[in-house]
Design a protein around this nucleic acid. Structure first.
Length: 819
RNA sequence: GGGUCCAUCGUCCAGUGGUUAAGACGCUAGCCUUACACGCUUGAGACCGGAGUUCGAUUCUCCGUGGACCCACCA
C-alpha cells in the first residue's frame, strides 16, 4: 500500500502553490466558460456526508472541464444565517446582548465554523476559486440580496398580508417549520349540530340540519364555513346555502370541497380561522372571512362570553354549554397528531398576523416552464420540482422573526402597512437603524417604522447563480457565466433551494439559473436510515480518514450509482475503491521499473507494435469514447465503472501479463519488440491516468510525477477518441496510424486472450502454478483465426510458458495442455 | 389519499427485446508468478409473482406483492 497521507499532503500543497492551475481566468475571452453553482453549506462546523459527496463529485467535474481546456469558474459559498447559530450564541452569551452585538457574535461563530469546514473541503482536494468565495453574512452579499428583493418589489412581486403562522403560546413566538414537531395526543371528536338556514324557493320543507365533527369546539366562534364533499349525497343539496352557528348568532356558508372525507366523522366539518393547516387551505381556496380566534398569549378573542379564556378552559366551557343546550350529539375518543414546539412540547396554534410575501403561486407555470429548459440529471428528479409547483397553496412567506438574518430593506406604515422601499444606492441597509425616506406614511399619514423581521435563509441562497456570475456589477462576466453551466444539489432541497432559485432568477432575469442540474440522493447510514444525530449513524470525514485515502473516498463517490436515489453507505464499496488505488499504484511501479530496464525510447517505437499492443491501444480508444461521453453527460459512475474495469481487468490482468516476457528479455533480437511494449505500457498508463485524474487527483499527480518530472497532470489534455477505419488502425497521440500487419488486431487480440484464459483454467484444474513450464498446448482454432495463432506461436509460448504449441483447424474452439 | 423511484447470485450492485447475464464482498480450490498475498488464477451462486405485446421478455405494458422516498391529511 502506498502512503496516501503523505502523497495527499504533498499535492494539496502543490495545488495551493500553483493556484493558476485551477483559477478562473477572467482575462481569457477565448476559452468557453464553465461556471458551477454549489450548495453553500450551512455553517455548523462539520461537513456531513452529503457535502462530502457533492464536493467530491463537482470537483471531479471541474477538473475534467479544466482538462478539456475550458475556463472553469468554481466558487464556494457559505450559508451562514440560521437559527442554530442563534441558539449557540444564546447559549454561550445569554439572551441579553443587544441586536447588533448579537449579530456580531453570530458572525464570529459562523466564521469559526467556516474555517473548519473549509479545511475539510480542502482536505478532500476541492480546488474551488478562493477569489470568488462568498458568504451570506458579508455586507457585499447582503447588498445583493436586498437589491434582488427591491427589484422584485418594483415588479410587483412583494406584498404584505395577514397570514397564519405557527405560534407557541407559551413562549410567545412564531415557529419555523423545522421547530414544529409532531406529537400524538388523545382527544375527543365532538359532534355538533348546525341548523341549515333559509329555504329552497317555492318549497316548504322541514328544518334541515348538518352535524359536524370537530376536535376543536373552542374555536366555534371563529367558524367561517361548513365544508362537505361535493359528491356526498347526504349534503350536496346544501352547498351554497348557509348554516346557523350554535351558541353564536351568525350564519356561515356551506361549501363543497374534495378535501372533505365522506367517511370521516359525519362527513361534514367546520372551517375555523384557524384550527389547523386544512383550515388555512380552505380559507384561501374559498376566500372565506377571517375571524381571529386566539390572541398571542393563547386566550380566546372575538368569542363574546368566552373571551379571555385559555384554550383548554374554553374547550370545557363550550362543550358544557353545548351539552346544556342539547346541541352536542356525541363525543368520541380519538388519537390524533398535533404539532408541538420542539423545545417545550407545548401545542402550537395558528395566529394570524401581517407577513411579507413573494408571489409564487401565480407564477407556478413560469417556474415549471423554466425548469423544463434545464437538463435535470437524472431526468426523473424534475418531477419533485413539478409536484411542488403544482401544490403551492399560498405564496412564499419570506420573513422570519429572528435576528441573525439579512435585514429586510423596507419600512412600512405602522397602521396601513404601506411599504416604503429603501434607496437602492444605499445598500446594504438595516431599516431599524436608518431614517425612512418619509417620516409619515404617504398614504395615511401615520408613523413609518423599520422592519424588525429578517429574510428566510432561502432568500439569501436563492440568487447564488446570479451572484457567482458577478451580478449586478460585473456585466462582462455575467454575460459569459449566466446562466451557470451546472449546479449540484441534493434531492432534499429541490422544493426549496432549486425551487426558489428558479423562481427568483426567472422573475429577475427572465432566464433559467443554470443549464444543468445534478440531483444526488441522500447518503444513508449503514443501518439504512437517514444519517441523523438521534440515530448516531452519521459518518463524517474524520471517521474515514486516515483509514481510507481521500482518493478512495472520491472514487467511492463516483462509483456510487444512481444519482437521484438514496444510497446506503457501504464500507465494502469503499474498500473496493481503495483496492483499485493500490492496483493503480502497483501497476505504475511496474511500468516505472520496466521503463528503467529498457534503453532510452527509440524514435517511433510504435512502428514495431505487435498484435497485443495494438489490441490494448484499440481497447483504450473504445474506453476513451465511453469515458468522455459519460463525463460530458456528468455521469461519473459510467466513466469510472468503464475505466476501472478496463484498467484492472484488461490492462493489468491481460496486457501486462502478456508483455512481461518482452520487458524482461535481454535478447538483442527482442530489442525492438521490447521498446514497443514499453512504449505501449507507458502510453496506456498515461492516458488512463489522465482520465482518472479528475476523480483521483492526488494519486494521479503522484504517478504522473514518476514519469514526467515537471508539472501537473492537470496541465495535460484528456485523450481523444478517434473513429477507426479498419482493424489495422490505431491511435497514437491523437493521430490515426496504420499497422503494417494485415490483420484485425482487435479481434485477434481478443481471441488470443481467450486462448490464454483457457490455458490458465487448464493449469488451475491441474493445480499447477501459472508460471510452471508445460510440455505442450493443443488448440482447436476456428478457420478465421488459424493463421493468426500460427503467427503468434512464439509469442504464446513465452506468455504461457509452454515448450510447444500446436494449432489445428477445428469447428469447436478448444484448448488442451500436456504437463 | 396523491406522487416518484425501485425489485437481478447469501450481501452489495451493473446490464440487455435474442448475451455464456458483468463486477465487488463473502464462500470454494489452487498459486509466495522478478508491480501488487491489500495480489493472481479457478469454481459454485441470481433476473419478485401473474397476465399481456412479441417468433422470442430478465428487459416493453398492465395488475399484484414487497421496499424506499416525497407530498398531503388525521376536521
Amino acid at each position: 500500500m502506498y502512503n496516501a497521507q503523505e502523497i495527499e499532503e504533498k499535492w494539496r500543497k502543490y495545488w495551493k502553490e500553483h493556484p493558476e492551475l485551477f483559477r478562473f481566468d477572467q482575462k481569457d475571452t477565448k476559452k468557453p466558460v464553465f461556471s458551477i453553482d454549489t450548495p453553500p453549506p450551512f455553517t455548523n462546523g462539520e461537513l456531513h456526508m452529503g457535502q462530502i459527496f457533492w464536493v467530491s463529485y463537482i470537483d471531479a467535474i471541474a477538473r475534467y472541464k479544466k482538462m478539456r481546456g475550458e475556463n472553469v469558474l468554481c466558487p464556494v459559498g457559505w450559508d451562514a444565517h440560521g437559527f442554530p447559530t442563534e441558539l449557540a450564541v444564546e447559549k454561550k452569551y445569554g439572551r441579553n446582548l443587544g441586536r447588533e452585538e448579537f449579530y456580531k457574535r453570530c458572525v464570529e461563530l459562523s466564521n469559526e465554523n467556516i474555517k473548519k469546514m473549509r479545511d475539510q473541503m480542502l482536505q478532500l482536494g476541492f480546488v474551488f476559486d478562493e477569489k470568488y468565495e462568498y458568504q451570506t453574512t458579508a455586507p457585499s452579499y447582503t447588498k445583493k440580496v436586498q437589491l434582488s428583493v427591491l427589484q422584485m418589489h418594483e415588479k410587483g412581486l412583494i406584498y404584505r398580508s395577514a397570514h397564519p403562522v405557527e405560534w407557541c403560546v407559551r413562549c410567545g413566538t412564531g415557529m419555523s417549520r423545522e421547530e414544529a414537531v409532531e406529537k400524538e395526543e388523545v382527544s375527543y371528536l365532538n359532534y355538533i349540530s348546525f341548523e341549515v338556514a333559509g329555504e329552497e324557493k317555492g318549497k316548504k320543507e322541514e328544518r334541515a340540519s348538518i352535524t359536524i365533527a370537530t376536535s376543536r369546539p373552542e374555536l366555534l366562534h371563529a367558524c367561517v364555513a361548513v365544508a362537505v364533499n361535493p359528491t356526498d349525497k347526504k349534503y350536496k343539496i346544501f352547498i351554497g346555502r348557509s348554516a346557523k352557528l350554535p351558541l353564536f348568532e351568525r350564519e356561515v356558508p356551506i361549501i363543497g370541497d374534495d378535501a372533505v372525507e365522506k367517511e370521516y366523522g359525519t362527513g361534514a366539518e367546520m372551517v375555523c380561522t384557524f384550527g389547523d393547516k386544512r383550515d388555512i387551505a380552505l380559507y384561501y381556496k374559498h376566500k372565506l372571512q377571517l375571524i381571529e380566534a386566539i390572541d398571542e398569549s393563547g386566550r380566546l378573542k372575538n368569542a363574546f362570553e368566552f373571551d379571555g379564556l385559555t384554550i383548554q378552559k374554553a374547550r370545557d366551557a363550550v362543550v358544557a354549554k353545548l351539552e346544556k343546550e342539547k346541541l352536542l350529539k356525541k363525543r368520541e375518543k380519538i388519537k390524533h397528531i398535533i404539532k408541538v414546539h420542539d423545545r417545550d412540547d407545548s401545542p402550537l396554534e395558528f395566529i394570524s398576523s401581517m407577513q411579507w410575501f413573494m408571489k409564487t403561486k401565480d407564477n407556478a407555470e413560469k417556474i415549471k416552464r423554466t425548469a423544463k429548459e434545464i437538463k435535470w440529471i437524472p431526468e426523473s428528479t424534475r418531477q419533485r420540482l413539478e409536484d411542488w409547483a403544482n401544490f403551492i397553496e399560498w405564496d412564499y412567506n419570506f420573513s422570519r422573526n429572528r435576528v441573525f438574518g439579512t435585514p429586510i430593506p423596507f419600512w412600512r406604515c405602522e397602521k396601513c402597512d404601506y411599504i416604503l422601499p429603501a434607496d437602492k444606492g444605499k445598500l446594504p441597509i438595516n431599516t431599524l437603524d436608518e431614517r425612512p425616506p418619509s417620516e409619515k406614511c404617504p398614504k395615511c399619514g401615520s408613523k413609518v417604522i423599520g422592519e424588525k423581521e429578517v429574510f428566510d435563509g432561502w432568500v439569501d441562497t436563492g440568487i447564488t447563480p446570479m451572484v457567482i456570475a458577478g451580478w449586478p456589477d460585473d456585466t462582462t462576466l455575467y454575460k459569459r457565466a449566466f446562466p451557470n453551466s451546472i449546479r449540484i444539489q441534493g434531492t432534499d432541497i429541490v422544493r426549496t433551494w432549486a425551487f426558489y432559485t428558479i423562481y427568483r432568477t426567472a422573475m429577475l432575469t427572465g432566464n433559467k439559473p443554470f443549464e444543468n442540474i445534478i440531483v444526488n440522493g441522500m447518503i444513508r447510514g449503514t443501518d439504512g436510515r437517514e444519517m441523523h444525530k438521534r440515530y448516531g449513524n452519521g459518518i463524517f470525514l474524520p471517521n474515514l480518514v486516515p483509514k481510507y485515502p481521500i482518493d478512495a473516498i472520491r472514487l467511492w463517490v463516483a462509483l456510487s450509482v444512481g444519482l437521484g436515489k438514496d444510497k446506503i453507505f457501504s464500507y465494502m464499496e469503499m474498500d473496493y475503491a481503495k483496492s483499485f488505488l493500490t492496483k493503480l499504484y502497483n501497476t505504475a511501479k511496474f511500468v516505472e521499473m520496466a521503463l528503467a530496464q529498457g534503453k532510452a525510447q527509440k524514435e517511433e517505437p510504435h512502428k514495431y507494435l505487435n498484435v497485443f499492443d495494438i489490441w490494448i491501444l484499440n481497447r483504450l480508444n473504445d474506453v476513451v469514447k465511453e469515458v468522455t461521453e459519460s463525463y460530458d453527460g456528468f455521469v461519473l459512475y459510467d466513466a469510472m465503472n468503464k475505466l476501472t474495469n478496463f484498467y484492472w481487468h484488461e490492462f493489468a490482468d491481460y496486457y501486462i501479463e502478456n508483455i512481461k516476457h518482452r520487458v524482461y528479455s535481454e535478447d538483442k533480437k527482442m530489442e525492438k519488440s521490447k521498446d514497443a511494449a514499453l512504449f505501449t505500457l507507458r502510453y496506456v498508463l498515461e492516458a488512463s491516468l489522465q482520465m482518472l485524474a479528475p476523480v483521483v487527483p492526488h494519486l494521479a499527480e503522484e504517478i504522473n510525477s514518476m514519469f514526467n518530472k515537471k508539472g501537473s497532470i492537470f496541465e495535460q489534455k484528456m485523450p481523444e477518441y478517434h473513429e477507426l477505419g479498419s482493424g489495422q488502425d490505431y491511435v497514437i497521440n491523437g493521430l490515426i496510424q496504420k499497422s503494417e500487419m494485415e490483420i484485425d488486431a482487435s479481434s485477434i487480440g481478443t481471441f488470443l486472450n481467450l486462448v490464454i484464459g483457457e490455458v490458465r483454467k487448464e493449469k488451475a484444474k491441474n493445480r499447477i502454478a501459472l508460471n510452471h513450464e508445460i510440455t505442450s498446448i493443443n488448440i482447436n482454432v476456428p478457420d478465421e483465426y488459424i493463421s493468426a495463432v500460427l503467427a503468434s506461436q512464439d509469442e504464446l509460448k513465452n506468455i504461457l510458458k509452454a515448450k510447444e504449441i500446436t494449432a489445428k483447424k477445428g469447428k469447436e474452439f478448444s484448448v488442451s495442455i500436456k504437463i
